[in-house]
Design a protein around this nucleic acid. Structure first.
Lengths: 143, 143
DNA sequence: TAAATAAGTTCCAAAATGCAACTTAATCGC
DNA sequence: GCGATTAAGTTGCATTTTGGAACTTATTTA
C-alpha cells in the first residue's frame, strides 16, 4: 500500500488543495454576495458549465457550500454559504487589500467587503495573540 | 481590435490572475522562508522544472520576485522577495488560520508565521478604518 | 582539469479546462 | 391542464495546461 498523495506539509497547502484553483474563491465570493444559483453563477463567472458542476460539488464536499432545493421537492437549487465559507472572508479581504495596494489596475469600482453597520470598507490586520498589530518586518516563517 | 481578455471586475480576480494557480503562493511561501534557488524550490515543492521556470518568470514579471546572480557574473541565481511579495503574508496567514480552524487534517507541526520578537504565532484580524475588530456577521460584499 | 552541479530547455504524455449541443424535469403563462 | 420555456445539469470532443524525464550548457568544486 503506497501513499497516493504526499502528506500535506502546511496549512497553506491544505487550504490551496481545497480552494486553490482558478474558480473556487470566485464562486465563494459570488455566493457570499447572493449569487447562488447555477445559471447565475455561470453568467457571472463565464465558467464552463461542466467545470462549474465539478467545483460546486467539490465545495459542497469540503463543507463550504450546501446545496438545497429552493423549496422541498423542487428541482431549482440554491447554493448557500456555510460558516466554513464565511470564514474565508479574511482570505478574500487580504486579496482585495493586496490588489488595492499593489496592482496598477486598481479600480475604485471594484468590489469591497464592508461593515454593514457603518458602510465602511473592512481590511485585514496582522496581529499577535493579544490582538496587537505586528509589522511585516518582524515576521518569520517557521517550518 | 477586440479585447483579448474581459476586464477584471474586482481585486479578488486581479490577485488570482497573478497568484491564483496551484503553485505561485507555495513558491512565495518558500522564498519567504529562504528557499530561493531553483533546485531547492523544485526539491521542496516537487514541481516539474518547466512549470517552475514559468511560474518564477511570471512572479518576476509581476514584481513579486527578483532574480539575481549569487554574485555578479555568476550563473547561480537567487530568487528574492520584493515588498510586493512580503505584502502577500496576510494572504498566507489567512489561509493558515482558515486551515487551522476548519480542516480536519490540522497538524500542530504545520508551518506558522511568527513574530520574531516574541516567537508567537501571528494571525489575521478583520478590522475597520480605525483598526477595531469587525465581526464576520456584520459584513456585506458590495459590487 | 575532470567530475559534479545548477539552472534551465525540450519533447512528449497525461490531465484539466473549455465549448456547444443535448437531456430531463419543473415551472410559467394562458 | 397543457405547451413553451427555463434551470440544472450531462456528454463528447477540442484546446490548453501541467507533468516527467532526459538533455544542454556553463560553472564550480575537488
Amino acid at each position: 500500500m503506497s501513499d497516493s498523495k504526499p502528506a500535506v506539509q502546511c496549512g497553506i497547502e491544505e487550504a490551496l488543495s481545497v480552494i486553490g484553483d482558478r474558480w473556487s474563491l470566485l464562486i465563494v465570493r459570488d455566493v457570499l454576495r447572493g449569487v447562488n444559483r447555477f445559471d447565475s453563477l455561470q453568467d457571472s463567472l463565464q465558467i464552463s458549465r461542466n467545470i462549474l458542476t465539478q467545483r460546486l460539488s467539490n465545495l459542497e464536499e469540503a463543507g463550504i457550500l450546501v446545496k438545497a432545493p429552493i423549496k422541498s421537492g423542487a428541482r431549482r437549487m440554491l447554493y448557500n454559504a456555510t460558516p466554513k465559507c464565511l470564514a474565508l472572508v479574511p482570505v478574500l479581504v487580504s486579496l482585495i487589500d493586496w490588489s488595492t495596494h499593489w496592482s496598477e489596475k486598481t479600480n475604485a469600482r471594484w468590489s469591497r467587503v464592508i461593515d454593514k453597520r457603518t458602510g465602511e470598507a473592512v481590511r485585514v490586520d496582522l496581529v499577535n495573540k493579544e490582538g496587537e498589530p505586528v509589522s511585516l518586518l518582524d515576521l518569520d516563517l517557521k517550518y
